[in-house]
Amino acid sequence: MLISDTHRFLFIHVQKTGGSTIDNNLSAALGDVRRIPEAHRHAPLERLLQLEPGLADYWIAGFVRNPWSRMVSWWRMVERFRDGADRGVERYLDHLKRNKFIASVIAEHPDFESFILNATAEHARLRKPQVEFMTTPTRDADFVGRQESLESDLKTIYDRLGLEWTPLESVNIDPGRPDYHDLYTPASRDRVAELFAADLSAYDYTF
């Protein structure tokens, strides 16, 4: 999450939606940025409003992504940590000592099919619909951008906040990522559709 009190703005950071790139660029453009120490950086809107009810009066934005593509991004991150640790890269080894979630996925799920069919049952964060990050019973995000149109949607946020646009400096780029369509079997495709039915309905995504 990212908060600018000067601009009365709250950004919701959903995992695997380009959020790190967005956060870095907004932080530089906004100037005054703060976080809520008690909240995880991927905390949903409902949790943030529990901690700071006054944020309901702020302009609230976040980004989402096609669920099938998003799950491939999750898996590619797992592969990077696994392969880096196998090569003995110290930063990956150190991270896996601290990140029990990634370590357990690597230990128990050797391939993408197992990750989709089984890891999603074991780890709640992998099956939480994105719409649940953006909505509460009393307050919804004012603007929901899409990772697929990240730059143009982020420009919309800049315009709304009166910020000067600067070219994006992307992070966590995965140039070797395959077309997500090629990785799914009928079973894994259906599993994602089942898990993220709320996202498919809310954001009109299709396979």
Rank of each mutant, 00 (worst) to 15 (best):
T135F: 06
S152W: 08
M1P: 11
H109F: 14
F11S: 11
T166N: 09
A187P: 01
L195G: 10
D190L: 11
A141S: 09
T206H: 14
D190M: 11
E38G: 15
E79C: 10
E108A: 09
Y92R: 06
S20P: 13
A107Q: 10
L49N: 05
P67L: 02
M134N: 01
P53T: 04
E52A: 09
G18E: 01
E164T: 15
W59V: 00
Q147L: 15
G88L: 02
A187Q: 07
I157E: 03
Q15K: 12
M134I: 04
D57W: 00
L10Y: 07
T206L: 08
R91V: 10
L2G: 06
F81D: 09
L30I: 11
L30E: 14
V105P: 08
N66T: 01
P53R: 01
L45I: 04
P137V: 02
L163R: 01
N25F: 13
N99G: 06
A124P: 14
D111E: 07
N66Y: 02
L45Q: 03
E169W: 10
L96P: 02
D111F: 03
M71V: 13
R98Y: 08
R160H: 15
M134G: 01
K100T: 11
L10S: 06
S170L: 12
A39P: 05
L55A: 01
I106A: 01
A124G: 11
E169G: 08
L30S: 12
A85S: 07
V144Y: 03
D190Q: 14
H181T: 12
V72L: 04
G88K: 03
G176F: 14
A107E: 14
I106E: 00
